[in-house]
């Protein structure tokens, strides 16, 4: 039975409507309180089996999903396929067949290839939650970022948010971009052009070449992690220069015309894309993001689990 509000799967924010996104955020709000209880568990998903299928190592996201599943009383199985000797593609199609045979209710998948979550969703009847597919989308991260921003700013319509850093290789950036735009926010990106998609100008966002200009404009910065491999890939010359030119530092923020909300999906490279005193500063909501991550994932799992809305 497909969810009446979300359909069968959650694969990305590009395909969700503003109403669907608001509904997930509205559901996550009250769920946050469950994590404050002595018994941090409700029986909502009792009897459901959820497989966490992580082809890429990602401790944070996996743990966040696991907490969400356990707090809703689902039975969970973790499958880590990273480091398997079988090539990625073969593993995926075989895994799909095996999962189908095991009659599980939901799969949370993290995979290094863009489109992998959809690939799986098209081939199994179980519901699929995308926990990050290649450089495509990471919808629950996008949603938790939206929730964190909404907690601070209220309605996001007309709010100015800048995504900073390696947008080219970032699934977080894409999910944020679609989610923010759907809720009516103004979205900008800032980073070296070698780390922005060439077609960024056609994606309906502002582009800042200098971080100073982004800081002057934005009400919130979502600072992406800079993968250290990008240096070897020839995209940037050095981490030191990256920090010099694009790093979000105290000095730069001090010159901003307003207080700016600082977000980071983690894990951070302190001293590269973000300085420690910014990450730990008064306007950082990085830990709220972590808290909200569990609530958002509970909301997504809960909403996907059900059938028709609003019973008697």
């Amino acid at each position: 039975m497909n969810s009446p509000v979300l359909g069968k799967d959650l694969l990305g924010l590009e395909t969700l409507s503003a109403e669907q996104i608001r509904l997930i955020l509205d559901t996550a709000g009250p769920l946050k309180e469950i994590s404050e209880r002595t018994i941090k568990k409700v029986p909502a998903l009792r009897g459901m089996t959820i497989v966490n299928l992580f082809f890429e190592a990602s401790t944070r996201t996996r743990i966040s999903f696991e907490f969400a599943e356990k707090r809703l009383s689902a039975d969970t199985v973790n499958v880590g396929a990273a480091g398997s000797s079988v090539s990625k593609g073969e593993t995926l199609v075989d895994t799909a067949r095996n999962l189908e045979a095991m009659r599980i209710d939901m799969v949370v998948i993290r995979h290094g290839a863009s489109g992998a979550a959809k690939f799986l969703a098209d081939r199994i009847e179980s519901k699929v939650v995308n926990a990050g597919d290649g450089t495509h989308e990471h919808p629950t991260q996008g949603l938790l970022d939206l929730l964190t921003l909404r907690d601070r700013l209220g309605d996001l319509a007309g709010r100015r948010v800048c995504i900073c850093g390696d947008v080219l290789h970032s699934r977080v950036a894409r999910s944020n971009l679609w989610g923010l735009k759907k809720l009516g926010a103004e979205v900008a990106v800032c980073g070296p052009r070698s780390l922005l998609p060439n077609a960024i100008d056609e994606m309906g966002v502002k582009v800042f070449d200098r971080i100073e200009a982004a800081i002057e404009w934005a009400e919130a910065l979502n600072i992406l992690r800079l993968q250290l491999e990008r240096m070897q890939g020839g995209y940037i010359p050095s981490l030191r220069e990256y920090n010099r030119v694009f790093g979000v530092t105290r000095e730069r923020l001090d010159r901003a015309p307003r207080d700016i909300i600082i977000m980071h999906p983690g894990p951070m490279n302190r001293g590269v894309e973000i300085d420690s005193d910014v990450a730990d500063g008064p306007h950082s909501v990085i830990l709220d993001q972590v808290t909200n991550g569990v609530a958002i994932r509970m909301a997504v799992l809960y909403l996907l689990a059900g059938g028709r809305p609003e019973g008697g």
């Binding site: 039975m1 969810s3 009446p4 509000v5 509904l23 509205d26 559901t27 009250p30 769920l31 909502a44 998903l45 909301a299 809960y302 909403l303 689990a305 059900g306 059938g307 028709r308 809305p309 609003e310 019973g311 008697g312």
Partner: peptide, 11 residues
């Protein structure tokens, strides 16, 4: 009765 009636959209 989550499985039969589905979730309320907002908790």
């Amino acid at each position: 009765d989550l499985q039969t009636i589905g979730p309320r959209p907002v908790v």
